[in-house]
Amino acid sequence: MKLVRFTQDGRTRIGKVVGEQVVDLSPLPGVSDSMRQLLTDLPNLRAALEAAHSPCFALTEVILEAPINDSQKFLGIGMNYRKHAEEARLAGIPIPESQLWFNKQVSCINGPYAPVLKPHVTEKMDYEVELGVVIGQRCRHVQASDAAAVIAGYLIVNDVSARDWLHKSPTFTLGKSFDTHGPIGPWLTTADEVDNPLNLEMKLFVNGELRQHSLTGDMIYDIYAQIAYLSTVMTLEPGDILATGTPSGIGAPTGRFLKHGDVMRLEIDGLGHIENPVIAESFGR
């Protein structure tokens, strides 16, 4: 299934995408307006969700929102693609010897087609196409061999980064967490519809120019190793988002940072696309 949050006639609810239509799932018993809660209850609700076929709306008649807006954690891994790690090394950034994780505050979550604000306090705002993994069940101490069982599904993440702010503190949190700097979507594709998440083609365009192009198979630590590593430290919960790393081609090495009026389009095989315009943020907003 392709699970969405959508707004129609001023009301936001949960649905599923079938072809060019959105089936409204909100009338079903047990379906609230929380995607996190839906994922918690998904094993019991799945049959009813899959069988639902009405009411429905054309995709052109609704606004697609961030598929999950109430995640408890939004975590990202740094320098997890081989070619990207090499370009970082050439820029003077050492390659980490283990998985390098950081927080994106959940307040940065943004819709798949919503504007990304460029704060006046950064001149080095950058883009990063990433495969997003969404956790489907509460888990701790997960072995890599068992990690697929705790994944609810996948979506596209743009890990927008203020590069100058990444160096203002010992952690990446501030530079990764400006409001609107976490576009996700366009929907949550459940894991059963993704044959091999380790062999997906991913692309990012800025104003129609291809900037990033890779396969998820170029990861240094695959998604299962990531879940095993994180769950050694913390309990993962339904709805938690893991941004699993970006390939080479970011703007930082060449100084090609984002500016007002730019449009970012991100595509991952089987997961659709998201597209976000860059808008200069008003001072003090």
Rank of each mutant, 00 (worst) to 15 (best):
R46I: 13
I95Q: 09
H273V: 09
V150A: 07
D192M: 02
T60R: 11
P247S: 12
E209G: 02
D195G: 12
P277R: 15
V31P: 08
T235A: 02
Q8L: 12
E209W: 05
V160A: 06
N80Q: 08
Q226C: 08
I274V: 11
M35E: 05
E209K: 11
N80H: 08
L90P: 02
G251V: 08
M1P: 10
N199S: 10
L166R: 00
P96N: 08
G245Q: 11
F172S: 04
F178M: 14
V31C: 11
L215H: 07
F257P: 11
G245V: 15
A91F: 12
Y221E: 00
E87H: 09
V206H: 05
V18K: 06
H84T: 05
G19P: 00
L230C: 00
D222T: 05
Y154V: 13
A152T: 09
S54A: 13
E237T: 07
L210A: 01
E275H: 07
G261T: 05
D179A: 12
I135F: 04
Y127I: 08
E20I: 03
L25W: 09
W165C: 01
L131T: 01
I241G: 02
K16G: 14
I268R: 03
E237P: 10
M125H: 08
Q226S: 04
L28I: 10
N44Y: 11
M1Q: 06
K104I: 13
K203Q: 14
T246Q: 10
